[in-house]
Write a protein that binds this DNA or RNA. Sequence first.
DNA 1: CTAGGGTTAG
Length: 594
Amino acid sequence: MEAKQRGNQQIDLQHGESHSHSPTYQAVLRAGPRVRPLQQAHAQIVVLGKHCNLALLTKLLTLACAAGSITYTRRLFLTVSKPDSFLFNSLIKGSSKFGFPYDAVWFYNRMLLADISPSNYTFTSVIKACADLSALRLGRSIHSHVLICGYGSDSYVQAALVAFYAKSSELSVARRLFDRIPEKTIVAWNSMISGYDQNGFSREAIGLFYQMRELGVEPDSSTFVSVLSACAQLGAIGLGCRVHDYVVSNGFDVNVVLGTSLINMYCRCGNVIKARNVFDLMSERNVIAWTAMISGYGIHGYGREAMELFGQMQTRGPRPNNITFVAVLSACAHAGLIQEGRRAFADMKQEYGLVPGVEHHVCMVDMLGRAGLLNEAYQFVKELNPGELTPAVWTAMLGACKMHKKFDLGVQVAEHLLAVEPENPGHYVMLSNIYALAGKMDRVELVRNMMIRRGLKKQVGYSTVEVDQKTYLFSMGDKSHPETDEIYRYLDDLMLRCREAGYVPASESVMHEVEEEEREYALRYHSEKLAIAFGLLKTSLGMVITVVKNLRMCEDCHSAIKYISVVCNREIVVRDKLRFHHFNNGSCSCLDYW
DNA sequence: CTAGGGTTAG
């Protein structure tokens, strides 16, 4: 064995190739993360009989992985006779870093089979792979390997574990682990904050951020990204602006990720102008940044601006991808840009070779349906492959039927949906609304009863409004607020003034409320009306009121708010589940098209 | 002989 090693070394020395400056090693480095040049370098290695040089092979394999060819990497790996821990660690890290989590796990298993002990470095990478796979069971067992091998207090491993449990929706486990870390690194904090954010617990994410600040821990750009995302979800522009100020005044570099996060926050908090400012100032803009900005215009109904930016992207920006086209098509749908939408859908397939998915189909049906082109929308649906006829597509078709009062087709579609997704309360609500519009009140009652019998409840609607950087939450008929009496009195008075100005409340028949109590409160006290009343009470003239609602707005509220904007002479902005409505002087930016 | 980890955007 010793003799053999020495022998190899002698050969290497002969060729002068035993260290990193050898021509072969240089050839591998020059090849970089590109498959073809790597194959050539590999050929050279084989020809020179250097296929036993592990250092060389490790570099080659790492680059093959970085080149994105996991098949080539694996093929090369099988030619290595005695892989060592260094090679395994490099491979596991590379596969998990470059998006091959399955392979990372596979290499990890090979490592164990080869009886090579994993190190803390091994664990960080393989745990990340488990996180990417949301592979809870596997991750748990690797967690126990960690403890057995004595790496339970390695700070890198701990942060990776926190992120892993959070990504596997085990937030309480993640939190318990996090709490037990005596010296929390900034990455541990970030893992927990982003864990909350990614699971929709925006308030918890922000709460933990405040806790971290109180302990004097300095945030970094990754912290900001998660906090801004939480602000975006909540519509918390106050905190969002403060984070932005902090970033700028402390000289943080607004990199492409942070910039995109800011764009998203400003767009979803209602300030597209500031979002565009950030976009224009960014030194690097990738496809995600462009898509975020286009999508931002889209949700505000600024279809022209969205298409203008998309045009620029096509001529001098990064190549649009599937998600870009979701943003483009939905912008077209919200703004009624039918020609542009049809064109984009065709370009997506023909010019860019992209395959439309469910979301694109939904956008198309939605776009055509809203515009009243019901036949074309229906034709579009019928031309889809059976596998593409998802409930989401039918739901879009149903929305169009309801909007344009296509009774027969609407009932047909709704009944189909009820059969496929009997547990989705939204379908019942739609069907009952369609019956109500057709004046078939007995049917309305029937659907309502069916819903009750199946124990289904309409999703609870709530709205939030920010006053003095604090957000207040209201739900329908809510009386939990300490100033409830004042708010209700003010709202009643306000609606009276709206009626005098010509507002006609929607008839009760079009409202679908399951509980008796809800019916009583429904019209007058929908959550957005309460939130707006509170906002008007607490802010001075000239201040814009911004409300965030978790569901779509009903037509009655939409009409009422138009009147409120007149009688109070206020600009009111409402973000509903899908888009923004800017109410001013009695009209809405969506032009009643939403 | 060879590097070095975990967190972050649409």
